[in-house]
Design a protein around this nucleic acid. Structure first.
Length: 920
RNA sequence: GCGGGCAUGGCGUAAUUGGUAGCCGCGCUAGACUUAGGAUCUAGUGCCGAGAGGCGUGGGGGUUCGAGUCCCUUUGCCCGCACCA
């Protein structure tokens, strides 16, 4: 009987679906295990072979854990809100819900063919009202909470109000916007609007005016992680900074906790490092400088991590957007300053970044007093200082900061070296090392000593205080788009009010067009009756990360209509034990999700403070393009190794009509009409194609659809091959050159169960050699899966199969456990063979094979000579032993003899102290 | 510029974690069975050499009885961050 993978795979996929083989429930006496994939955005292009890489790995792990007796939660869903569907809608007028639905169906079909063990009853889609009800709910919870710095945790806003009513805000230490202090009486005498404005400064989800990334092309604001090098991640359009009033999430309040709790996570160091950089904690001090011109004087606070260099602060710089700019600009300089501000505002982020080498700036006309040197130093404005970081103002120390140095050189400002022996003739000395000089009381100290000493002095003289700054900023949460979650907020008399929970979900309304209105309002403003009790509803929608921030919680209890997740479900499933996905979410989703989880933890909603215990980043699969070489001016194509003799043009050819770099000539002629009469110059009767590794994309003709592989080789081969390709975390090109080997392995495995076309498995007991093969395999597979070393795992299956062929073994005692082990990797073929062996119930739920046989010294068998006839043992020998003594020790060592029994020792290689190599 | 990672046959990779480098697979060579084979099976396959043997983990140096693995240095690739004061 042939290995008919098409039939087998179809049969078992249907069986698993019909019988809900992979359905899981919370009420179980088994230990839980939660394995999660980063759910996909269902794009119109469908899945290519790169997408399932992580899914296959997580599926193998899930199946393995299930075999080991765990109750495994392994769900899948779709991150279905997003820009591409909306842009498609704008172009075609088709509702994004329609295209999204279509794409999801396609994804589902493709996923189903690969044989994943998902519990599809738990599928979620972020664009469904029953799901986004809970996204809206979480937003309202954030709206109704504030962050208490004293306890470092979210607290209800009602509690804040009652404190205000009793004692004002003087005793409150909150993470909030700019609020001046007030007493209880002052609070109580405020209007409703005034109170609402103040409360807004405290809320965790708040409406606030800040400098935002505005993308004119997309017509929306973007979060920091959606912008890279001044361009939008989606589409690559320029982004400018603009002051806008937007909904924001106070992620920055959680900066320290996000940092601290990372310690216990089982994530890669590089990913943790990325998050650390993104959070960007820096320790320093805020220092007060008096500054002003003839007409007025102000206190300006700056932030610095190098308080030790204050004696070298020879000027001050303000960000163009700084609120001090207006105040410190003198009348004489007003005109130039205004010109500069206009110029700076027009620059895109990208231009700003590009101008690192050349700096621009303008003098304000004001001077500040360096509090340590008492010198008068000029105050400048330049866009190399960012408004959003620190206080938007710096003390410039050109001798020890490269940016200040460039600026000082350009505008001819004084540079004072502060470290003995440093050379600042051509560049600044940025290193934090050396002995201080020109620095008053700090002279003679090392930099390390001088930093705290300087801050102590600052604090003693009440010029400022120690301060920790974070690069992490609050997340801009509004998008001026249609295809997202509506905000459950309505406006009454200028006050933002929550739409109560029992009116949720607030469903996305129908609109006639998906574009902004003529007056520039977001598309939702087109909706008829977009009101609540007659009051207008917020017209922005939430960003992509809103729906993906808590989806892992929803899987625990996907159909609950009373709660995001029930207490019972949450306390059973707790958090994700294994999360697999790409690194591209390091600073977006993985930060937001952690923040979201921590907030829900604070309000007592979830029981774990971190969402994802272990995280694996699968590598990207790149495309491997193939080329043909057309002789210029003809329809002749020359094979790779002969092309040097001709003047040729390199042309991408569809990789699906190339096999092992050999072109299928007939398929090529049929591929495009212009090649139908193509002629070929062959080498050894073949046309060999050139190749290159490129991004997988349609235009390079190197996209491989997993369906194609499933048709040709079957899903089991696809699964094994993707794992065999190399280490999971490594990026690699998709290269089908080796797929035949893996396919051959499955065919060989299949044949092991058949004799002359008949299914034939022996029920005789296995002998020691055969058991050894099995036990070696069990041990290896177990450790490989636990270490996510799936490539060597596949190899181990192949090695064991070779050995079984050598032993001519078809015994059930060996083949049955082998089949169970293989079922994690190749479930379809395993299921078929499992049933043919006469078993009831799915192999996927079978009992994990255990060691059924322990070796003892009495076991006598020849050691399989798979180490090229050489064995190596560790023995506890001392240097002083003679060769004979060592030989004797080897012979007497029980562990060694157990394996050596029955073999003749030919040679012993001795390395004194540790190791003995034995050739038999 | 800063931070992290990698470098092993013609190719993808492996190496019991400091112990005879090259497992497994691809490809290739030869053979068997075949009308045929993108099927199957057998043998071989790091490099040089007829052979004995020698040389080999990007280059150079070091530690060690012993280094692909540890340390220093250098080169080349990949990834992340980038005016964050």
């Amino acid at each position: 009987m042939e290995y008919n993978f098409i039939e087998i795979e179809k049969k078992w996929q249907k069986f698993w679906a019909d019988n809900k083989t992979y359905k899981v429930d919370t009420d179980s006496h088994k230990p839980k295990f939660y394995v999660l994939d980063m759910f996909p955005y269902p794009s119109g292009a469908g899945l290519h072979v790169g997408h399932p890489l992580g899914y296959i790995a997580s599926d193998i792990y899930s199946r393995f854990k299930r075999l080991k007796g765990f109750n495994v939660l392994h769900p899948m869903g779709y991150d279905a809100f997003g820009l591409p569907a909306e842009q498609y809608a704008i172009q075609t007028g088709q509702h994004p819900a329609v295209t999204t639905e279509k794409n999801i169906q396609r994804y589902r079909e493709q996923l189903d063919r690969i044989g994943f063990s998902y519990d599809w009853d738990r599928e979620i889609r972020t664009c469904e009202p029953s799901y986004y009800k809970w996204t809206q709910w979480a937003f309202l919870e954030m709206f109704n909470h504030w962050f208490d710095n004293k306890t470092s945790k979210a607290q209800p806003i009602d509690m804040l109000i009652s404190i205000f009513e009793k004692e004002g805000n003087t005793n409150i230490n909150a993470c909030c916007g700019e609020v001046s202090s007030f007493t209880a009486q002052e609070w109580n005498s405020m209007t409703e609007l005034q109170q609402a404005d103040i409360l807004m400064q405290y809320r965790i989800a708040y409406l606030g005016e800040t400098s935002v990334n505005w993308c004119p092309e997309l017509g929306t604001v973007l979060a920091n992680d959606e912008v890279k090098e001044g361009l939008s991640l989606r589409g690559g359009f320029p982004v400018v900074q603009r002051k806008m009033r937007q909904w924001q999430l106070r992620v920055s309040a959680y900066a320290q906790r996000l940092l601290d709790d990372m310690e216990d996570l089982n994530w890669t160091d590089s990913l943790k490092e990325m998050q650390r950089n993104w959070i960007g904690r820096s320790q320093g001090a805020e220092i007060l400088f008096k500054a002003g011109h003839q007409k007025a004087s102000y206190d300006i606070t700056i932030f610095t991590t190098r308080a030790d260099t204050i004696f070298g602060a020879t000027f001050m710089v303000l960000a163009p957007e700084s609120e001090w700019v207006d105040k410190l600009t003198s009348d004489e300089c007003r005109e130039q300053v205004d010109q500069y501000l206009v110029l700076a505002a027009k620059k895109t982020e990208r231009e700003r970044i590009a101008e690192t080498k050349k700096m621009s700036g303008v003098f304000t006309g004001s001077y500040a007093i360096n509090p340590f040197t008492e010198e008068k130093i000029p105050v400048w404005i330049s866009d190399y200082v960012l408004a959003g970081y620190g206080t938007g103002a710096i003390m410039a120390v050109p001798a020890h900061d490269s940016r200040d140095y460039t600026f000082a050189k350009q505008f001819d400002l004084p540079i004072i070296p502060l470290i003995e022996g440093c050379d600042i003739s051509s560049e600044s000395f940025d290193a934090k090392e050396g002995i201080m000089c020109n620095s008053g009381f700090l002279n003679g100290m090392s930099v390390e000593q001088a930093i705290p000493a300087a801050i102590d002095e600052v604090e003693r003289r009440a010029l400022g205080k120690r301060k920790i700054n974070y690069r992490l900023r609050d997340a801009i949460f509004s998008r001026q788009r249609y295809w997202g979650e509506p905000f459950p907020i309505y406006y009454k008399d200028g006050i933002a009010n929550p739409i109560p929970l029992d009116s949720l979900p607030l469903e996305l309304p129908e609109v006639d067009k998906f574009l902004p209105t003529e007056s520039g309002e977001p598309p939702l403003a087109r909706a008829e009756k977009w009101t609540y009790n007659g009051y207008p509803i917020e017209t922005s929608t939430m960003p992509g990360f809103a729906g993906s921030s808590a989806y892992y919680l929803r899987y625990m209890d996907p159909n609950n209509s009373n709660s995001l997740v029930s207490k019972e479900a949450n306390s059973y499933w707790r958090n994700v034990d294994l999360y697999i996905g790409g690194t591209e979410h390091a600073t977006g989703h993985l930060i937001y999700s952690r923040f979201w989880n921590k907030f829900l933890y604070d309000i007592g909603y979830v029981c774990e403070k971190e969402p994802f215990k272990k995280l694996i980043n699968q590598g990207m699969i790149q495309g491997r393009s193939n080329f043909v070489y057309r002789v210029k001016g003809s329809n002749k194509f020359v094979s790779l190794n002969l092309k040097d003799g001709y003047d040729t043009t390199e042309i991408h050819v569809d990789v699906n009509i190339v096999h092992n770099d050999k072109l299928d000539i007939d398929a090529f002629r049929a591929w495009m009409p212009e090649y139908s009469s193509a002629e070929f110059i062959l080498e050894d009767g073949e046309y060999i194609c050139g190749w290159a590794v490129e991004k997988m994309s349609k235009s390079m003709f190197n996209v491989v659809n997993p369906d194609t592989i499933c048709e040709k080789y079957g899903a089991d081969t696809l699964r094994l091959y993707e794992m065999f390709l190399g280490p999971l975390e490594q990026s690699k090109p998709w290269d089908t050159n080796g797929i035949d080997g893996v396919n051959r392995f499955l065919k060989r495995f299949w044949r092991l169960f058949f004799k002359e076309g008949e299914f034939s498995v022996s029920s005789e007991p296995a002998d020691a050699k055969e058991l050894r093969v099995l036990h070696k395999l069990i041990k290896k597979i177990e450790s490989d899966i636990e270490n996510f070393s799936f490539n060597t795992g596949v190899s181990a299956f192949m090695i064991a199969l070779n050995e079984l062929y050598d032993l001519n073994c078809n015994k059930k005692e060996i083949l049955e456990p082998y089949t169970i082990l293989l079922s994690s990797f190749a479930p379809h073929i395993s299921e078929e063979l499992w049933r043919l062996m006469g078993n009831e119930g799915s192999v996927c739920l079978a009992e994990y094979p255990k060691y059924i046989h322990e070796y003892t010294v009495e076991d006598s068998f020849e050691y399989p000579i798979s180490f090229n006839g050489k064995l190596r043992f560790k023995l506890n020998l001392s240097l002083k032993l003679s060769k004979e003594e060592i030989e004797k020790a080897v012979r007497e060592d029980a562990n060694t003899m157990r394996v050596l029994n029955g073999l003749t020792i030919k040679k012993i290689i001795i390395v004194p102290g540790k190791i003995v190599n034995i050739v038999c």
